[in-house]
Nucleic acid binder design. Structure first.
Lengths: 131, 131
DNA sequence: GTATTTACCTACTATGTCAATAGGTAAATA
DNA sequence: TATTTACCTATTGACATAGTAGGTAAATAC
């Protein structure tokens, strides 16, 4: 299940793309337009900055703006950054302990194929497709 | 993320299919072979019986057995029963309150398409494919 | 008809994650 | 100097997950 972290991140990027005026856009405005708690968005946006999805500037006239063109953001990259990974079962998560049953596990290929479908779908979609 | 409820349910069905001897198989044996807590499996298996995935019989010689042929179980049906639904975002869950933003939401089609891909994938796979 | 084996039932619990909130400090501009 | 903004640390309530504990009811074997 994709959480608010990933979903809100995408909405922030859409908002920034559609309200782009060349300068920085204050989080207050984004939060108001998107009807999301500004305080909660701060946490999410902070991770987006450190993850290289956008840049921030403090002080008057500050705010956030995109650091790439919308077609250069894949949805998969955004979700993977915000959700950790989109592994659909625990044993395929990035930080999972190696499963001792993996070799003979009859369900593993099912999850692996689904993970691949998921990966391919979200990496084929870009921010520009959502505008 | 698919939880142990759905994953263990599939493993129980695989175990029953592969150890089918025409009669009932005690949960104790399934739990031992699959290395899953029998107590926890009781909860899962109970829901599988009430959901029509298998039948149980009490007493000596009792246990569980499949009530259909393996090719008549779709993975999608199993997961949907055990996980509630496999909606990938909260606003598409079966019990979700209608989202006031749905009409103008620019991300909704992204999630809807992914939900459809997920649905189609899991309903195309059957227990017989996993044996 | 008693002992044994099995399913089936209700309740409880530890742990972790999610979705925030609270209350600040630092930086940049007017 | 005042204002606006990002940025930082800590805390919280609600809920889900993955179990555990301790029983009762049903069916068969002897």
């Amino acid at each position: 299940m994709i959480s608010t972290r990933g979903r809100y991140a995408i909405r922030v990027l859409i908002d920034l793309a559609e309200n782009d005026n060349g300068g920085y856009i204050p989080l207050k405005d984004i939060a108001a337009r998107q009807d999301i708690s500004k305080k909660y968005l701060e946490i999410i946006v902070k991770d987006m900055v450190s993850g290289g999805l956008l840049v921030g500037a403090s002080g008057k006239g500050g705010g956030y703006k995109l650091c790439r063109k919308p077609e250069e953001y894949s949805v998969g990259e955004i979700l993977e950054l915000m959700e950790g990974s989109f592994a659909t079962v625990a044993c395929l998560a990035d930080d999972a302990a190696p499963c001792p049953r993996a070799k003979e596990c009859q369900t593993l290929p099912l999850w692996e194929e689904y993970d691949k479908i998921t990966h391919d779908y979200f990496y084929s979609k870009h921010l520009s497709d959502l505008l």
